Amino acid sequence: MKVGIPRALLYYYYYPFWKTFFDALNIETVVSKPTSKTIVNKGIEFSVPEICVPIKVFAGHVASIVDQADYIFIPRMVSISKDEYFCPKFMGLPDMIKYTVPGAADKILSPKIQSHSDSISNPKHYTEVKRILGIGSWELQRALFKAEKEWQKFRRLSKEGYVLSDALKIFDGETVKQEVPKNSEETVTIGLMGYVYDIYDEFVSMNVIEKLKEAGVKIITFEMLEEKQLMKRLKFMKKQLFWTFSNKLLGAGYYFYHDPEVDGVIQVTAFGCGPDSMIGKMMELDSNHYNKPFMTVRVDEHTGESHLQTRVEAFVDMIRRKKREGGGGLPYESNLSIHGNNAGL
């Protein structure tokens, strides 16, 4: 038996859990290849035009492996925090794929995940998986225990300062050298905001992580911070957002604004994301108050890579020049929608 795992959306956050879970059940996993123009075009073909880029990309990944597996694993992500929820597109994702991607209707394996924490190892979430795959209760619990253990190891790598792309390589057995720029007057630290499927999909983000590394930038992302650090920065809000990962990003954004070591903030967002438009506007309006530069990079299926590289390099150079001149922080805000027909998606 083979289970397909699309390399999109929460793959970048939960893949070590899912992979370990199916391995423990002696079920072979088929992971789609990294995002390419072909995959994106497939996703566009099988999606409504108004849907956001990450969902189009996900549909393309499903289409690329639907004929290679007996089942496609598409969990129905409802909640991983009390009184907070995922975007409705995540909740309805199994249904969208079922009725849009040819050949997927009878192959979708979609456990309903509704938890009060990031941990998704409660056996009650996997009743459907247990039934369809014919798994015994003890076998299921043993597999979930192993999966949770590996996922916690993976999360600890983030807390140690590894970006998720490097942490995933380590999970797969690769040797990764963590190169953190040495502290100096010209060292630039950037708080990088963005959903994991926006910043860690190298095709979607045009490899923004590597571009920042090449520029000698120290990168901090929300998953490197403790939950209590994120939530502390949201206490000023009378009512938090409804969406879990949006709250994580917003909490990280204000953490970056308060952290004297963070020199600037870059938000990578996909065109058509409603929650992100709210987060970006809040960060933009407060950038002057905290005297820190903020830039939004908005990507869609027509994004051009050369545009992004130019903007990111200019942003980092501006900060580095200001630090060299002894100016510290600076009031700068740029809400950029980067588009182009020459490259990218």
Rank of each mutant, 00 (worst) to 15 (best):
E174F: 14
S337R: 08
K235R: 14
P293V: 03
P123V: 09
K112L: 15
P260M: 12
D118W: 07
N183L: 15
R131E: 14
H116G: 11
E186G: 02
Q68C: 05
K37F: 10
L93F: 04
K2G: 03
T189K: 08
E261S: 15
L133M: 15
D118S: 08
M96P: 01
A252K: 01
G328R: 15
K146Y: 14
V316D: 00
Y11Q: 05
N247G: 04
I319K: 02
R298G: 09
F86A: 02
W243P: 00
S337C: 06
N122L: 10
I132P: 00
M91P: 01
K248E: 06
K177E: 15
P260R: 10
T100L: 12
M224L: 10
K37L: 14
T244K: 08
E333N: 12
L164N: 01
A167M: 07
Q309S: 14
Y12I: 05
L230A: 05
L241V: 13
R7T: 04
D300Y: 08
V204Q: 02
I39D: 03
A63C: 08
E227S: 11
G344N: 06
L140E: 05
G194Y: 00
G274L: 13
S47R: 03
Y257N: 01
I113S: 07
K56G: 07
A252E: 02
E210Y: 12
R298F: 07
I51T: 12
K232M: 13
P75L: 05
T127G: 14
Y12E: 01
P34F: 08
Q141L: 11
G264D: 06
N335G: 01
I266M: 08
F86W: 08
V299Q: 07
S64M: 07
L9G: 03
V53D: 01
E160Y: 15
V78G: 02
Y15I: 00
T244P: 03
N247W: 03
M224R: 05
V57S: 00
N26C: 12
F145R: 15
K235W: 09
M282N: 10
A63N: 03
K218T: 12
C87E: 04
F86M: 10
E223Q: 15
R155N: 13
C273Q: 03
R76V: 09
W243G: 03
G328W: 10
S47W: 02
L109F: 10
